[in-house]
């Protein structure tokens, strides 16, 4: 007799697809926030599965700060063209004209102007009532309590006192559109970083090559390895780019994203490094792993 059981990855996949379909069934104008990162790649992959053979019934939205890695932008355009996805790209042109950049402005100001503000304006302009995001509960201690449906008022603010209990797989998607209410939806809530990598491997999902080790020009700054991605990178006195074999664990604006030294050139090798790192940590070895990515932090505070 067949077992009729699902592996943990297939279970997570089925649950995420359920959530994505539920939103499409109950909302008028959803959008998927697309950051080009590995979580976005997994989320977009799940969305395509959820509606196959029909095309994706909603567009993607990328908030472009103009400081993303070049490879990210190339990947984005190629991915959307290849799968026939409708993509909106929004940039805070006013902030660009004012010369707001990650070098001169504090990361709070930079993030707020380039990401949060841009996103909120784009959602209002295009009248989206539900926005998918790729955030996971395992990213940080305080995210552990987040709902899958996160309710936002007219100003797209999270009202912590007005979140709804979520039982079984029954999601309450009722909002007051007259009042401009909307929701953010996190279909990957129950995935861990390891699940995401395992699934990328299982499904051969395309990811930005920056996640895999390769020789890249980097400078060492405040304990981080920063890649010199274009001529706008301002080098400090004494800094000379060195070619080093590195990869990125998270992707964002290149001047703010630290690389790690690694020899993992394939997805299985990345997974091996992850598994060995946590384990050797328990055995008391010194390991090479960066603290909570600083970009991740910003993404949560403002962007998401």
């Amino acid at each position: 007799m067949p077992q009729h059981t699902l592996s943990h990855l297939r279970q997570l996949e089925a649950e995420s697809i359920h959530v994505i379909r539920e939103v499409v069934a109950e909302f008028e104008n959803p959008v998927m926030l697309y950051s080009i990162g590995k979580d976005s790649s997994v989320m977009a992959h799940l969305a395509r599965k959820a509606f196959a053979p029909a095309p994706l019934p909603f567009p993607l939205l990328h908030v472009d700060t103009t400081w993303k890695f070049r490879e990210m932008i190339e990947f984005r355009d190629r991915y959307c063209a290849q799968h026939g996805m409708k993509l909106y790209v929004r940039t805070n042109e006013k902030a660009v004209r004012e010369g707001i950049n990650p070098f001169d402005h504090g990361s709070d100001k930079y993030t707020h102007a380039m990401k949060t503000q841009t996103l909120v304006e784009a959602l209002a302009e295009l009248r989206f009532d539900a926005a998918f995001g790729g955030a996971r509960r395992d990213e940080e201690k305080s995210r552990a309590k987040e709902r899958i449906y996160s309710f936002r008022d007219r100003a797209a603010q999270w009202d912590p006192k007005n979140q709804r209990p979520e039982l079984w797989n029954l999601y309450n998607g009722r909002i007051d559109r007259q009042k401009g209410e909307s929701i953010r939806v996190f279909p990957l809530s129950n995935w861990t970083e390891l699940d995401v990598w395992l699934y990328i491997h299982l499904e051969s999902i395309d990811i930005v090559p920056l996640y895999l080790a390769a020789p890249r020009p980097v400078v060492q700054r405040d304990g981080n390895l920063i890649m010199v991605d274009d001529a706008r990178m301002r080098l400090l006195p004494g800094e000379t780019p060195q070619m080093e074999v590195v990869r990125f664990r998270t992707l964002g604006c290149y001047p703010l994203t630290g690389a790690v030294r690694s020899s993992a050139r394939t997805v299985p090798e990345v997974i091996r490094e992850m598994l060995m790192a946590t384990t050797s940590e328990r055995q008391g070895r010194v390991i090479d792993h960066d603290a909570e990515g600083s970009m991740e932090q910003k993404k949560r505070e403002g962007y998401f």
Partner: peptide, 28 residues
């Protein structure tokens, strides 16, 4: 390790459930 919620509780934020994750070779 799991007390990240204390501060929010004091601020009156509703926390119904916090979800944590771990895995062994047998299960997630």
């Amino acid at each position: 390790l799991t007390d990240g919620l204390r501060a929010e509780r004091e601020q009156g934020i509703t926390i119904d459930v916090a979800y944590r994750f771990f895995a062994t070779s047998k299960r997630k």
